[in-house]
Design a protein around this nucleic acid. Structure first.
Lengths: 95, 95
DNA sequence: TCATCATTTAGACGGTTATCGAATTATCAA
DNA sequence: TTGATAATTCGATAACCGTCTAAATGATGA
């Protein structure tokens, strides 16, 4: 039996909304594809979007708990939180 | 290895958006909880929402492929499409 | 046929959100 | 310190979305 992280209702709502935008979905994919942290500039290479917009989306994803953003000097270090995504999957599976 | 239904990009987008609204999420849960078809009126008992709004949400869920709506005389027969939901889960899992 | 009930459509309104450019903060290197 | 680079914040705008009421459609039964 896998350990399951519990999600609050409001976190579930935030996650669902975060996943609903194609741009954020793409960002998540890109971040998940790398084992090491990703910087904003890396993402901008594949997302035809302004830095302001990207930053905005990242904040949404972070608020949902799907990523963490650690500032490392000049760069951001963006990491996918697989356990949160997994918990959301479990939640959907329960439908 | 389970058979996997393939989803188009646009269907994935529709599904994600459909799941993003708490009301639709609740509707889906309610529909999934029953083995037999559900009618609109059944849903209205637990959703404090007008019939028009409910119908609107059902159309979104149907467009996403998450439910089918069959008109049976006076009533609608709403059925969860588990295989589509499952396919979406597989898609998210691939992140 | 007529009244009634279940659902859908049409049209409108208010709130949310994705987006941008410009200004700001933070860090590094020369 | 100064300039360049990375990212965030601010303020504005346009599009989208959830909701409603009112009206229409469709089916059942008296």
């Amino acid at each position: 039996m896998p350990k399951r992280k519990a999600l609050t209702e409001s976190q579930i709502r935030r996650i669902a909304k975060a996943l609903a935008d194609p741009r954020r979905h793409d960002i998540l994919k890109k971040v998940g594809a790398r084992t090491h942290g990703v910087a904003c500039a890396d993402l901008r290479e594949c997302q035809p979007v302004s830095a302001a917009t990207l930053s905005h989306h990242l904040k949404d994803l972070e608020a949902a708990g799907l990523i963490t953003i650690v500032r490392r000097g000049k760069f951001a270090d963006i990491i996918l939180q697989r356990d949160v995504l997994e918990a959301y999957l479990n939640h959907l599976r329960a439908i």
